[in-house]
Design a protein around this nucleic acid. Structure first.
Lengths: 116, 116
DNA sequence: ATAAACCCTGCCATTAACGTCAGGGTCAAG
DNA sequence: CTTGACCCTGACGTTAATGGCAGGGTTTAT
């Protein structure tokens, strides 16, 4: 399958698929005319990439364990757990900060509304 | 006072102070040699800017009501409340998304740990 | 044989609040 | 009169995953 079809099947833009290749996440075989070709495995691979991106991981992080998790269970790939844990800490820090901002905002909104 | 002193007093970098001026948030008077001069009011003004930035507002949003809130109570400035409410919605959307990611991450972490 | 629909490789743009030079004046103290 | 500590104006860099365009080849169908 060519890149346009892979794009339609996965929802990833053609531009994104080329970017994943450039970042070493997705391989393609070139036809004589230079067109990229993909097999059915690529489709699942793209969905896997999309999932990890949706967790907020960077392409670099994904690249560090993608080959492993495509062939094994996640638990087998030692890279994965520490990345997950780092990400969790980041998320918790962001949640904390957003929560504080939210509290501040609510206070301000309430005090404006009360004074009307 | 010159920009260096204002920077020390407020903790904002010299670069930031110039940026606030460029964005119309902070005025200065120029000396004969071109140096910026500030009065004591500027110090409080910078702290006000810093506070609004800490709420995650953009310099553009801040600029839309800063002059008003420097001279009146927030409640008097009609621009403020809708901006606060929009920001609150953004925050809530982010909190929701981060919460979902966090749940996913925790699931993955747990399933890895259980299989060890 | 031609138009529509693909594909390719660059490369610039995006976001927001700065950081960080370069290249050059100004000023105070010794 | 020189050194060090200031100040100035540009202007490019930063972050990350794309969007979008230019300029050009390929394929498919009519």
């Amino acid at each position: 399958m060519k890149i346009g079809e892979l794009s339609k099947r996965t929802g990833a833009s053609v531009r994104s698929l080329r970017y994943y290749e450039q970042e070493g996440l997705l391989a393609s075989v070139r036809m004589d005319n230079g067109y990229r070709t993909y097999n059915w495995v690529a489709e699942e691979q793209v969905r896997t990439i999309q999932f990890y991106l949706s967790l907020g991981l960077t392409t670099e992080q994904i690249g560090s364990f993608l080959n492993c998790v495509l062939k094994n269970k996640e638990a087998f790939c030692a890279e994965v757990l520490p990345i997950y844990e780092r990400k969790l800490q980041e998320i918790d820090a962001q949640l904390l900060q957003l929560g504080q901002i939210r509290t501040n905002l609510l206070d301000r909104i309430r005090s404006i509304q009360e004074s009307q």
